[in-house]
Design a protein around this nucleic acid. Structure first.
Lengths: 170, 170
DNA sequence: TCTTTACAGTTCTAAAATAGAACTGTCAAC
DNA sequence: GTTGACAGTTCTATTTTAGAACTGTAAAGA
């Protein structure tokens, strides 16, 4: 499966993965949320090769997740800033951090604490139901096809004959 | 940067990315949450090559995200079931789906709806503060180093001399 | 003026990961 | 005794990444 194909799957998760589902893109976005904005900033913070960084930044701009804004003329220079679409990735970032905080910390504890302006406390992110406000558990959620569905299950209609025919074709 | 190194970075997000930050792993986990449990099930639903599927399942088992449980003797067969550690990835999955629902749907609408058992309604996941219950916005959160920090900022202490010295070394 | 530095890339080659297909092996059913 | 389900493993070819060097503009300093 190519990356491009992912973006066309009838599954919101697959499409999202097609956009941000690789290591470097995710790390670049982490830096964006930490207020890094410039090429050199990303490069030195991440140790990513310049080649890949340039390529990923282009992709994020093309997808409307970052905006490329000039901050000086003369030698033309640009900053990369999160758009609203990019800012909307925040829950994903927080969910990733929280899982790491829960399952991947060593004996020293969390590398980073998060403080909420509104209440002033260090917090954990909690995912709740938009309708009743209760925390969401996988077992308490039932999925069913929406208007954009193509298969009775969520996802990835295996509409490629290959998938099933693979062995009998031999 | 190698995948192994990621898991040792002083950043919970980097560590999480080291575990689940690739396309196929994420898609395999999606299938797990949709109750797929067997090798052939994953393979035909995803179209992943058998080689990679075997490799990724091993990794997920090694990391304690899936458990490999025999479901028949004779030809020994196993199922792959989410552990609690794996189930805890649910907010990440939901956050990915929700972003896709918001920004990647086509004119037909969402491929999949989610219904909450407790309240019976279709819902969106909302990420809130564990302390005050208010929805979290990136701009209202301040990060500061925790006990496991190694750099004043969250993350990725660029402790590799290469990062800065790269040009002057030439 | 000449050199160095900051910055933002681009362009190579080598190494690693992934795709794609076929092969292995056990057992049940036809 | 042949076929099919299932769960892998083993190949080669293609794509991606890593790693390092090179390009080019302009400011700062010797």
């Amino acid at each position: 499966m190519k990356w491009k194909e992912l973006e066309e799957e009838p599954c919101s998760m697959a499409r999202t993965i097609g956009v941000i589902g690789d290591r470097w893109t995710l790390l670049i976005l982490r830096e964006c949320f930490l207020r890094t904005r410039r090429f050199e900033g990303f490069q030195s913070a991440l140790g990513i090769t310049r080649h890949l960084l340039a390529e990923r930044l282009k992709k994020l701009v093309r997808l409307g997740i970052l905006r490329r804004i000039p901050y000086q003329e003369a030698p033309k220079r640009h900053e990369y800033i999160l758009t609203q679409k990019g800012l909307d990735l925040y829950p994903i970032m927080m969910a990733l951090v929280h899982w790491g905080d829960t399952h991947m910390v060593d004996e020293r504890g969390r590398p980073l604490l998060h403080q909420h302006h509104k209440c002033g406390k260090n917090f954990d992110p909690v995912m709740v139901c938009s309708e009743c406000g209760e925390p969401l558990l996988a077992k308490e959620v039932h999925t069913h096809p929406g208007p954009g569905a193509q298969s009775p299950l969520t996802i990835a209609a295996p509409d490629k004959p290959k998938a099933k025919a693979r062995r009998s074709a031999a």
